[in-house]
């Protein structure tokens, strides 16, 4: 745990942020006999006492035990309660509450408003610890989910136009390496902080394209360009090209040889999958010259949101 961070938090966080709001109270004129069921039923060790809505005392389990040990004669709560109540204001910082716990060795403080002194909650040590832990966890998650730190990078670059380019060379006919470029691209985009569903879509498109380069060509290049609002991926080769583009885009159309199919590829879904994954998909091909694919993906307006 980051100690500096916790110290900061105890100064910044208010009592109202961690206190228990749903307070069980008892009226000053109610009977001691009623306290038993209240304490038992709710597993609490002390109850604030109210008179006309104002806090007038606190009756604790110790007070109750004393009463049990002595006379047990039923009487009003006000006769047995502690009138000297140490309270804390709802807008006090947690650090004050912690000091108060230490100096008084009390287990709980009723929380009141500064102006009207009305009771708004109760604070125990447990509340403070739980509240701090929750805040730490949220902060941690927010840090984890602080999406697209690349945006931060972009925000600090003074230029009319900025982009980050990632280039990968793909070897043709090399099945052992096939997919490696897309896996690395995926990891990199993750590190740049793009939303995970977006990264997955980009990776799928790039992987399909990479497999095509491996299966059908002597090799090619994948170039990914990350801009503030979109990711653009270009895959090009100088391979055989595609004779009938329209047909190539039909699901299931494939010219792959049987051995490629037996490896689980070449089922005629590659281009279809790419198109499905991308926000924009452009393919250009000339037989004998090669093929260029341009796929682009929008980075959502709300890049900070966790999906």
């Amino acid at each position: 745990m980051n100690v500096g961070k916790t110290q900061e938090m105890v100064y910044e966080m208010k009592v109202s942020a961690v206190m228990t709001r749903d307070v069980i109270t008892i009226g000053s004129k109610e009977r001691m006999s009623r306290l038993r069921s209240l304490l038992q039923g709710n597993r609490i060790s002390g109850v604030p006492v109210l008179e006309k809505g104002q806090l007038v005392g606190l009756i604790s389990i110790e007070d109750f035990i004393k009463w049990l040990a002595n006379d047990q004669e039923d009487c009003a709560i006000e006769e047995r309660m502690t009138r000297e109540v140490t309270t804390i204001y709802e807008d006090d910082p947690l650090v004050l509450a912690i000091r108060k716990f230490e100096s008084t060795s009390l287990g709980r403080f009723p929380v009141i408003t500064r102006d009207q002194k009305t009771l708004v909650g109760i604070l125990t040590k447990g509340d403070v610890i739980e509240g701090l832990l929750k805040k730490l966890e949220i902060d941690y998650q927010e840090q984890e989910a602080r999406h697209f730190p690349a945006r931060y990078l972009f925000d600090n670059i003074e230029a009319d136009d900025t982009s980050l380019q990632l280039r990968y060379n793909v070897k043709g006919q090399d099945f052992t390496q096939a997919g490696d470029s897309s896996t690395r691209l995926k990891r990199t985009l993750r590190r740049l902080g793009l939303r995970s569903d977006l990264v997955r879509r980009i990776a799928i498109a790039s992987y399909e394209a990479e497999m095509n380069l491996v299966i059908y060509t002597e090799g090619g290049r994948i170039r990914a360009e990350v801009e503030p609002a979109r990711v653009f991926v270009e895959i090009e080769d100088s391979g055989p090209g595609i004779a009938d583009l329209e047909k190539a885009l039909e699901p299931g159309y494939s010219t792959a040889p049987e051995w490629v199919r037996e490896m689980g590829f070449g089922a005629g879904m590659g281009l279809v999958n790419m198109k499905k994954s991308a926000d924009e998909f452009i393919i250009e091909s000339e037989p004998g010259r090669g093929t260029t694919l341009n796929v682009s993906f929008r980075i959502n307006e709300e890049p900070h949101e966790v999906n």
Binding site: F175, A178, G179, D180, T183, R200, I204, Y207, M263, G264
Partner: peptide, 14 residues
């Protein structure tokens, strides 16, 4: 299918 591409595919598709 048992070739290494299956592992890569799973990596890509999570």
């Amino acid at each position: 299918l048992t070739n290494p591409q299956v592992v890569r595919t799973c990596e890509i598709a999570e």
